[in-house]
Amino acid sequence: MINVPKLETLFLWGNKLSGSIPSCISNASMLKNLDLSNNFLSSLIPDTLGNLRHLEWFQAFENNFTTEFVTHEWSFLSSLANCRNLRRIDVSINPLKGLLPTYIGNLSTSLQYFYADDCELKGNIPMEIGNLSGMLHLSLWNNELSGSIPASIGGLRNLQALDLHSNKLGGPISESICGLERLDTLSLWSNQLHGPIPTCLGDMTSLRYLHLGSNKLSSAIPSTLLNLQDILELDLSSNYLNNSQPLDVGHLRSLVRLNLSRNLLTGDISSSTGGLLTLLSLNLSANKFHGHIPESFGGLISLEFLDLSHNNLSGIIPKSLEKLS
């Protein structure tokens, strides 16, 4: 029996604990921080966690927690709706399976961090997720989520990071995402998204990391993306994007990684690319670029990786590239 009525913090992460979470943990009624991560715990996450009315922080990632064999119901989320001060939930890397329930929208609006990565989730992202108005980070990567990205995500006005990569999400990228004015990271790579890149993404001046690679996006790369002058990483690789005019990326002065590989881009490579003094990695391979390699590439003094393979480039290799050695 757990009988520690004044206990506020219980950290047991990074051990070799096994078995289940005892339901009597609710006896620690003043508990605020509970971290059971990186153990060998299994069975169900108990509904009695909902009795911890002061709980603010619950982490249980990297265990072997499951859900009911038949329903795979995430009932523990329903119980955690009783914890009105809850700020963080992390149940990543557990074989929970099942669907993300609609009652996720009943969680406290104080919730700021929700991580359910690599949990074997299926089905749609419920529109009720848009009720979590206090959310800062939402991460559901490496699951089997399908359907479209719900427009209700645009209601998470404080969101700073949205990571949905490595799922089976389809449909177009919802323009409601453009309303997330504080978004720093948008990671949607390795899905089945199609249609154009929304031009309004160029209005999201807080973006530092935009990863849309390995989808089925088509049409031209919108010139509005060149408004993201503080962006650090831009990955649009492995899509069906096309541009007949040189993409003038010279204004992206903070750019560290640019990957436009495996698209249908044509025309000349813009000489303005050589002005990106902070660039570490540049991948323009497997497109249809033609003309010469710009002499200006010799100005990429920080460059560590350059791939221009499988294009239609001609002429001689510029001597300016010797500056990169």
Rank of each mutant, 00 (worst) to 15 (best):
T9E: 11
L12G: 14
M30N: 12
D35F: 08
S37A: 14
N38I: 15
S42L: 13
D47H: 07
L49S: 05
F61P: 05
F65G: 08
T66F: 07
F69P: 10
L77G: 04
L80D: 03
I89D: 01
I93T: 11
L96Y: 12
K97N: 14
T109C: 01
F114S: 02
D118R: 15
S133L: 10
S133M: 09
S133C: 10
M135Q: 07
L138C: 04
L140K: 01
S146D: 10
N158L: 04
N167D: 07
K168N: 14
L169C: 04
I177W: 00
T185W: 05
S190C: 06
N191D: 07
N215F: 01
N215L: 07
S219L: 11
N227D: 09
L228E: 14
Q229H: 14
D230L: 10
Y240K: 14
Y240R: 12
N242D: 13
N243H: 03
P246L: 06
L247V: 04
G250H: 11
R257D: 03
R262A: 13
S281A: 15
L284W: 03
E295N: 11
F297E: 01
G298N: 11
G299E: 12
L300D: 10
S302Q: 13
D307F: 13
L308R: 03
S309P: 08
H310S: 07
L313E: 13
S314V: 02
S320N: 12
E322M: 08
